[in-house]
Design a protein around this nucleic acid. Structure first.
Lengths: 339, 339
DNA sequence: CTGTTAGCGCCTTCAC
DNA sequence: GTGAAGGCGCTAACAG
């Protein structure tokens, strides 16, 4: 990488002259036309790219933080947009100069990504969507260079903004149980996302406590796609083993299920009721056929709180680790009306 | 903002000592426990936050670019996730140290956002989702401090990655016309997004050229929500004025339309065929009821090319402005099968 | 154990 | 019209 020094040497002028010209102040400072064009040409030849760190240092930014936002690149990219939006809104609110750098990582490979990223140049880090493997890495080997806040995860070591995920599962179970739907199933992802297992635990425990334990065979593991849920539900329809109530652990799966029921002539909610966790935009689930009953994860809000907490940690206004719990929003649609 | 100098003065040690301690190398360099804890305490008291620009400058990053990505915060946040993903993938491919900063802006208010953001600290800027107002600002008053690439827009002044949007509309029209669906309508957003008007123009012109002009009354303006499309389509159903074919200019609207047809007993595709532009994740439209025929905008790909072009412009490997055209992907679902 | 010094790349002030 | 010098905040090499 060449610098203005290189250009100055090549052009036979001083560094100051180069700086003036490249910042478009040549005319104002009455630098000769020739000198200017010579400098521009050489800058181009040497492939000059200004060093923004140096510029910034010189400009002495006040209250300027660099925050990294790690996000998984799988099927959940949709909802990450809303997290980012929440984070950005909070940045506006705070009226500070905060640069949010988005860093993608592959689920189960957070470690590699973190090693290749130079985290020492951030003031704070927010991490979303970690798998158990990723949590394991964070909780054991990782040494943070700055405050770290986890999105919807819990850890003994790091701050986080999360939900009472066990209670989410409990609430879904109670909704079904209140309607006498004892033959229930769970449609879930086959990967190990901690929160999904917490939801399921709350759901299963509640059914068991109420005297209607759900068998292992009623837990259906899908790939993380509508297509996979579609296949499984088509099979259930063909076998005639569809339960009376299905708890879908994400709307991605619920979409596949709705489509399977549509194709096989199973009526929702008459034949089977569907309750899901909303991770997509609320609107999408309001206009599915039929519309989905669900508990929406407050993505934007969690993002917002993550950013606020990160700043508070940077400024040492809260102790580390701090944990904040938020509530999910229950929305009753057509797929499972109130009892 | 305090610096290590302030801490050094306060603690009565040199700035080097402070630097060593705060970087966790106290033990290794055998700084006394007391000195260390004194430094930590004072750092906390003075609310010290390291200046990352200075750190970075010192570390002399090579091939390190800062790229800003402006995105609109409206209903399109969903698809912006995929753009970001494409951009990030390209960053990985390039094997350069590129920091992507996401900067949200309100549609029609790009100007204000750009003024409040210090763009002079970026090496390149990518802008998505501009309205006519935003384009106007860019094309007239805006003076870019670095290369600018537009996402799916055209401009005489700036580089861009875009689609042949007129042709997209033509293709939809031809699909309907080949099936003899002459009574067609357009369901579109009431805002002025340039590409939507281009789609519509291609669509309307083709119908007219083929001798089946579409009347003004067949153009339905919605708010940018499924809810709004739902209301309009419910009205059409009630009046019995639903056309035989509907071109939805975004799947957000198509979702509202599908739901309205479901509720009012209008059969798709028997009573009305639906063709849409896919902006959401492809999967969502594969599992609507019925699944949607559509042309998907290659969001990720456009993002990817935007980043590549930005880097090429920074490194002056391509002239400015450069324009690149990409193709949309046609997917035939149940809502409008092949003729 | 701690301090001094030099310099990362850039811009601004002042001097000629 | 142009150049020399100083300094933004930080770290590493070297010196005690």
């Amino acid at each position: 990488m060449s610098t203005i020094k290189d250009i100055a040497k090549e052009a036979g002028v001083s560094i100051a002259t180069v700086s003036i010209v490249l910042n478009g102040k040549g005319k104002e400072r009455k630098i000769s036309k020739e000198t200017q064009s010579r400098i521009y040409t050489i800058a181009q030849q040497l492939n000059y790219v200004p060093n923004q760190s140096a510029k910034k240092l010189r400009a002495a930014q006040k209250d300027s933080y660099a925050v990294a936002f790690y996000w998984a690149t799988d099927f959940r990219i949709n909802y990450l947009a809303r997290i980012t939006l929440g984070i950005q809104q909070e940045i506006m609110n705070l009226k500070k100069n905060i640069r949010l750098t988005v860093i993608p990582y592959k689920v189960d490979h957070l470690e590699e990504q973190m090693k290749s990223t130079q985290n020492d140049f951030f003031n704070g880090i927010i991490i979303a969507n970690m798998s158990n493997t990723d949590m394991e890495f964070l909780n054991t080997t990782y040494v943070p260079p700055c405050p770290v806040v986890l999105f919807n995860r819990e850890s003994p070591k790091f701050s986080s903004v999360t939900m009472d995920n066990y209670k989410v599962g409990q609430n879904v179970a109670r909704h079904f149980l209140a309607k006498g739907l004892f033959d229930a199933g769970v449609l879930t992802h086959d990967t190990t996302f901690p929160i999904m297992r917490q939801w399921m635990q709350g759901f299963l425990d509640t059914y068991k406590e109420e005297g209607h334990p759900i068998g292992e065979d009623r837990i259906y593991l899908c790939e993380t796609s509508s297509a996979s849920a579609f296949e499984i539900c088509k099979r259930l329809a063909a076998e005639g083993t569809m339960p009376k109530a299905m708890f879908c652990e994400s709307d991605v799966l619920a979409h596949g299920m709705l489509f399977a029921c549509y194709e096989t002539g199973i009526a929702i909610p008459q034949d089977v009721e569907v309750f899901t966790i909303g991770i997509n935009m609320p609107e999408i689930n309001d206009y599915t056929v039929p519309s989905l009953s669900r508990i929406d994860i407050p993505m934007g809000e969690i993002g917002q709180e993550c950013l606020r907490m990160t700043v508070d940690l940077i400024e040492k206004k809260v102790p580390s680790p701090t944990v904040l719990f938020l509530e999910g929003k229950t929305i009753i649609g057509q797929s499972s009306p109130l009892g």
